[in-house]
Simulated scan of single mutants.
Amino acid sequence: MPQILEDQTITEFRDKGVTVLRGVFTDWVETLRSGIDSNMADPDPNARIYKGDNGGGRFFVDYCNWARFDDYKDFIFNSPAAKIGAELMESRQVQLFHEHVLVKEAATGVPTPWHQDAPYYCVSGPKTVSLWIPLDEVPRETTLEFVSGSHKWGKSYRPQRFDGSALNEDDGLEDIPDINGDRDQYEVVGWAVSPGDAIAFDYRTIHGAPANNSASRQRRAFSLRLLGDDARFVRREGIVTSPPFPQVALKHGDRLAGDEFPVLLG
């Protein structure tokens, strides 16, 4: 199969920890919208719904439902997502970690706090990528933002829930810097995106998003978390991970394996 992405895009992902992909999933927008409709009608017990102080729209967050919804399975196994992931990670193998749905309805006064994904997770590996796929028009002022190059800092910051509370109070990690209070000190990047575009980023890249204060525009996004060569399971006693994967019996340091983490390529 010919290469999908330009070399410049792959280099940008490697150097900055984030890049934008235009129109790569245009043919899959309706499939993912249908899947999200089904998911919101039948959420997992672990789904979370946040509401701002102003009592506006909901911020709906759910994950690990791909095996329950045919639209999600269709996208994960039949779209070019795995091939794109392989090119970005420069990896022979691509494995599914999980999917993540994030819907900010109109007038959702709840921002997504600055964070890294990696410290939340029960997996690790030298090659990681999230594909954040908008299913609505997202203007620059409400898009996901990233601190360029932060994946190379060698830092792991304390995970927090999307309401700002710590996931683990005594995890030994430091608080994330106050990006909003000192934006001039960082290269903050973000893009206006359309349905079918994708923003690809390393699990270690710091990112966040403002509240959706639009009175009429919702922001639906489907995020696919992929892993490349030599992915390993991480088990830390007394530490809550998100997603938790309580049914997985792998030991700390085991190669990632099992029905929960299918190999998509390689």
Rank of each mutant, 00 (worst) to 15 (best):
A215M: 13
V188K: 06
P134A: 03
D42E: 14
R68T: 07
L173P: 03
Y186F: 06
V20D: 00
T108R: 08
V123P: 04
I4C: 12
D230R: 07
P139C: 04
P134F: 02
Q247I: 11
L226W: 03
S242G: 12
P2W: 07
I4E: 11
P262V: 04
S91G: 15
R33P: 06
P262Q: 10
G164F: 15
A192K: 05
G154H: 02
V101C: 03
L224W: 15
E187P: 05
A198Y: 11
L32M: 10
N168W: 03
P246K: 11
N54D: 04
G266I: 13
D44S: 11
L224R: 10
V110T: 13
P126A: 11
A215P: 14
R161T: 08
L250D: 04
W153R: 08
R22D: 11
W191N: 08
A231D: 12
F261R: 10
D170H: 12
F201E: 00
R204V: 00
R14I: 12
L131T: 06
V24Y: 01
L5S: 01
E237A: 11
L226A: 07
S156E: 14
D230W: 15
R92N: 01
P177H: 15
W114R: 09
T31V: 04
E237D: 01
T19S: 01
A200F: 03
R219D: 02
R48P: 00
P159L: 04
P134D: 10
L264K: 15
S242F: 09
N213A: 06
P195T: 02
V18F: 05
A118I: 06
G172V: 06
G109F: 15
D254Y: 06
I199F: 09
A209D: 04
E90F: 00
L32T: 13
T128D: 06
D178P: 03
W191H: 03
I76H: 15
T205R: 04
A209V: 02
P134V: 04
E174K: 10
D170A: 14
R92A: 07
A249H: 01
I176F: 10
A211N: 12
Q160Y: 11
F245Y: 12
Q93E: 02
D202N: 13
D175N: 02
D7P: 13
G35N: 12
